[in-house]
C-alpha cells in the first residue's frame, strides 16, 4: 500500500526541521567554544600552539565533512565509548564547526590593527585582559558577517547526518520519499524548508558585510 503525499506527509518532513535546527545550534555553540580556543591558539605567540591549531584547521578544511562524521561515528565505539547517534553527530559537527570558526576568528583577530595590541601591552594589561577587553570586542565586530555566513554552511552541512541514519530534515524527506514514491515532492519540500532557514541568514550576512565595508 503506497501512502499518498498529503498534508500529514508534508508535516512529517517539516517536523524534521526541529532536529536540524537543534543540531545546528549545538554545533554552533560547541564549535564556538572550541573554535575560540583554536583561534586564540592560532594567533598565540607560541609557535607550537600555532602549529597545532594550524594542523587542526587544515585537517578539517582538507577532508570531506562526511568522512569526519564517519570517523566519529565509527571511531567512538572503537575507542570504547558507546554513544547514541545524537552525541556522535553533535561531537562530529562541533569539531567541524570549531575548525572553520577558528579560522574565521583567527582572520578577524589578525584584522584588528596591531597598534591596539601594542597599546594594551604598553598599558601593562595581562594577556587575558588584552584579549577580553581590547582585541576580541573589535575582532567580534569584524567576524559577524562571515560567522553568519558559516551558519548557513553549518545548517546545510547537518543534512549529512542523514547519511549515518540520523533523522533530521533530509532523512525525514528520504523516509517520506520512499513511503509515498513521490521523491520530487518530498525533496522539493525539504529544499524549500532549507531555503527558508538559510536565505534570510545569507541575506543578513551579505548586509552585515556591506555595512562593515562602508565603515572601514
Amino acid at each position: 500500500m503506497i501512502r499518498q503525499f498529503g498534508l500529514p506527509e508534508a508535516l512529517a518532513i517539516l517536523s524534521g526541521v526541529q532536529a536540524t535546527i537543534l543540531l545546528s545550534l549545538i554545533a554552533f555553540v560547541g564549535g564556538g567554544v572550541v573554535g575560540l580556543a583554536v583561534a586564540l591558539m592560532r594567533t598565540s605567540e607560541r609557535t607550537w600552539l600555532q602549529r597545532c591549531a594550524g594542523f587542526y584547521i587544515d585537517f578539517f578544511q582538507g577532508t570531506p565533512l562526511l568522512m569526519q562524521l564517519f570517523l566519529v561515528f565509527y571511531g567512538l565505539p572503537v575507542l570504547g565509548y558507546k554513544v547514541n547517534p545524537w552525541i556522535a553527530v553533535a561531537i562530529g559537527f562541533t569539531l567541524h564547526a570549531s575548525a572553520f570558526l577558528g579560522e574565521i576568528w583567527r582572520g578577524s583577530i589578525q584584522a584588528v590593527p596591531r597598534g591596539q595590541t601594542e597599546a594594551a601591552y604598553a598599558l601593562g594589561l595581562s594577556y587575558a585582559s588584552r584579549m577580553r577587553n581590547v582585541v576580541l570586542p573589535q575582532a567580534m565586530r569584524i567576524s559577524v558577517a562571515p560567522t553568519v555566513g558559516f551558519m548557513v554552511q553549518l545548517i546545510k552541512g547537518t543534512s549529512l547526518a542523514a547519511i549515518i541514519g540520523f533523522v533530521e530534515l533530509s532523512r525525514a524527506a528520504q523516509i517520506i520519499a520512499s513511503a509515498t514514491y513521490k521523491p520530487l515532492l518530498a525533496y522539493g519540500c525539504a529544499a524549500i524548508v532549507y531555503f527558508v532557514l538559510c536565505f534570510p541568514l545569507s541575506r543578513l550576512s551579505m548586509r552585515l558585510e556591506k555595512r562593515f565595508a562602508v565603515k572601514t
Binding site: V152, I155, K156, G157, T158, S159, L160, A162, I163, S170, A173, Q174, A177, K182, P183, L184, A186, Y187, G188, A190, A191, Y194, F195, C198, F199, S202
Partner: peptide
C-alpha cells in the same frame, strides 16, 4: 544562484537523481 547556495548539496543530488525521473 540563491537556490543552490541556500539548500544542501545532499538534497540537490537527491532531487536530481530520485526526483527528476518523476518528470
Amino acid at each position: 544562484v540563491e537556490i543552490i547556495r541556500n539548500t544542501p548539496f545532499l538534497v540537490q543530488v537527491f532531487f536530481i537523481f530520485f526526483g527528476l525521473p518523476a518528470l
